[in-house]
Amino acid sequence: MALLTLSSPHTRGTNRTSRIMATVALATLPGLAVMTWLFGYGTLINTALAIVTALLSEAIVLKMRRYPVSFFLKDNTALVTGLLLGLALPPLAPWWITVFATAFSIVFAKQIYGGIGNNPFNPAMVGYALVLISFPVQMTTNWAISFQVSGQDVASFSDTLSMIFASAPGMADAYTGATPLDQYKHLIGQQTSEQVLQASTFNGWLNGGWEWVNLAFLAGGLFLLARKIITWHIPISMLVALAVCSLVLGWDADAYTPVTLHMLSGATMLGAFFIATDPVSASTTPTGKIIYGAGIGILVYLIRTWGAYPDAVAFAVLLMNFTAPFIDAYTQPRSYGHKKAKRGLKSGDQ
């Protein structure tokens, strides 16, 4: 009578990767809804396009690698990558940018490294950074102007479709412009803070509508925290670092972007709760996570303030991805029964 002999434990919790990823996807829904409300159907269309591209490219690569396709697709990681990328890209970005970014992030940033769990960089951000560098014009000027802020009529679904897929040149211009972060940075040199806020992008709104986007993502992030999908370390340290930097260095709203704009504009909340917390490419020790998050916050501020790009979450995350293994090596927690944590690299390690 041969019985099954497996190593203990013989029981499992209910955590599953697919479930975690599904929860993450669920937590983005408020943000997605707000963005759709503000920017029209473009967000929805691009997100759907990114998800489909992500799943497709993942399936193709898995097939080529002779991996079980459905088994891996069901872990929902490609879905989340596509979703996050769709949320990060400009709502009216031409379809090929979305497809290119997503396919690149899945194929090159994820599968080429060995698939799930093995990618050293956040795949979505790799794709985003690639198109940001390659197509700066489309990426920085194709940001839809909030219909709610500008008071324009929401572009119809078919119009949006043609703007995205046919790249109708004239039509999109009416709906696009620089983001509030971009605008503020460029105008504050010549104008006072009050004048800047009168600009069309803001039109009296605190952050030109972006405050609602960020609050929605903050809500989603809190949901993830509550569900213990993520820990507080990275988002909190990142937000605190960003806030401290902007308060200390940018206290003068007439010279620098104010803290409110930093915290509640651009991809701040999306980055803090959904992108920087990508476990695969982030630091894993508790202390390490705090350092990692703070690093992202500081980098975001530096690049936003003195860099050429209007937003900086992608670059900051990617830069900190580089440092994650190093941070981990030096932030091992003190284990039970040890007086001091063993830290650093063992001599002989490279």
Binding site: N15, T17, I20, T77, G115, I116, G117, N118, T231, P279, V280, A282, T284, T285, P286, D328, Q332, P333, R334, S335, Y336, G337
Partner: peptide, 17 residues
């Protein structure tokens, strides 16, 4: 595949990684 979610580290009673 391990996604380095760190849940194991949170559960570890010996504070290992």
């Amino acid at each position: 595949a391990c996604i380095r979610c760190g849940m194991c580290a949170d559960a570890c009673p010996a504070d290992l990684l």
